[in-house]
Design a protein around this nucleic acid. Structure first.
Lengths: 179, 179
DNA sequence: AATCACATGTAAGGCGTTACATGATTGG
DNA sequence: CCAATCATGTAACGCCTTACATGTGATT
């Protein structure tokens, strides 16, 4: 599922501007997708050229025209097609875990800072997902947000309970180095 | 942390060939990183050119020469430097969740198949991580594998307990469509 | 007879990010 | 008065994947 397709999907839920689509991705979808303006705007232009969405310009004072996009019938069909393909594997790239895999090479103080920060970051993410829950939402969106929350909770919990493993390893290697 | 840097990191744990490095990424690191030969081999050539690693060719019969890479002192320093930067956010892209976010547009039968398959896939991943646990491993690697296992368990559990949310949504919309 | 494991590499292309460009309005 | 929000877009570049290219030996 690329940016183009997800834009199309978001438009099945109602008309929106590129700016609003970005907002949706940042809030409801941020735990499993992200895209910058640099990919969203070109995607919307391409979809328009292909006739999968249409655009209405609304002039504004002092700002670029607001461009409201709507999905067309053929856009709906095309999106339905994309949805029916079996999903590929999730792609994850974690710089945090890559660093943790070499924790014994890290100064203990730095390591602890990294761990603290990671817990704090995931607590923030979790709080944002809880905010979402108060908004009106379909069952499927609720499922997706709940999934994110479950993963974040598992991570926070795991790091809290097991940080001693890496913190111990770092301390040990520092002790050895000091000798 | 790019492919280049992770190759360097793997070589801090001992000499290896490109092929072996790929194996390590596929087994111990697959839950938070992946890289194809198309990125690993060029990375190793670049690192060699920069003097961060060295290469020893071992001729073999009927196969390309085996090239065993070793990290140099400046390679170690460079890797230590990379490690001390605060990690950026994890990047996740889940086609599965993207599809689930639009579950009400999916035929119920297909949706159930997708959910079943997802649970099966994550159970496989979990089993592979448990296999790893039996191998000799540093505490930091154990931490990283445990993290993966914790996340996989949380996902499997969440999908089992909450699939009714999306399955209900899909059924409802099919009923409406049939009327 | 076929497939997997071993072993390395290149070229083209896809997909996306970052940085740049512009600028009014509103809230703290 | 400064930052954030609203609003759109391009160009350059980075990073990686896919497909291609080659070939042996062991296992099923």
């Amino acid at each position: 599922m690329d940016v183009r397709t997800l834009c199309l999907g978001i438009l099945t839920k109602g008309d929106a501007t590129g700016y609003e689509i970005k907002k949706v991705m940042e809030t409801r979808f941020s735990h499993f997708f992200d895209a910058s303006y640099g990919s969203i705007y070109p995607a919307l232009n391409k979809l328009t050229a292909e006739g999968l969405i249409t655009r209405v310009n609304t002039p504004q004072s002092g700002r670029p025209d607001k461009k409201i996009y709507s999905i067309t019938a053929s856009g709906r069909l095309s999106f339905l097609d994309s949805l029916q393909k079996m999903p590929g594997e999730d792609r994850v790239r974690s710089e945090f875990l890559a660093i943790m895999a070499f924790a014994e090479l890290l100064p203990a103080r730095h390591l602890s800072k990294v761990l603290d920060q990671r817990i704090a970051t995931y607590e923030d993410h979790l709080a944002e997902l809880f905010d979402c829950e108060n908004e009106p939402m379909s069952e499927s969106e609720r499922f997706v947000c709940g999934y994110g929350a479950a993963v974040y909770k598992a991570i926070i919990n795991y790091v809290r309970e097991n940080r001693h493993m890496v913190e111990g390893a770092a301390l040990l290697s520092e002790t050895r180095a000091a000798e």
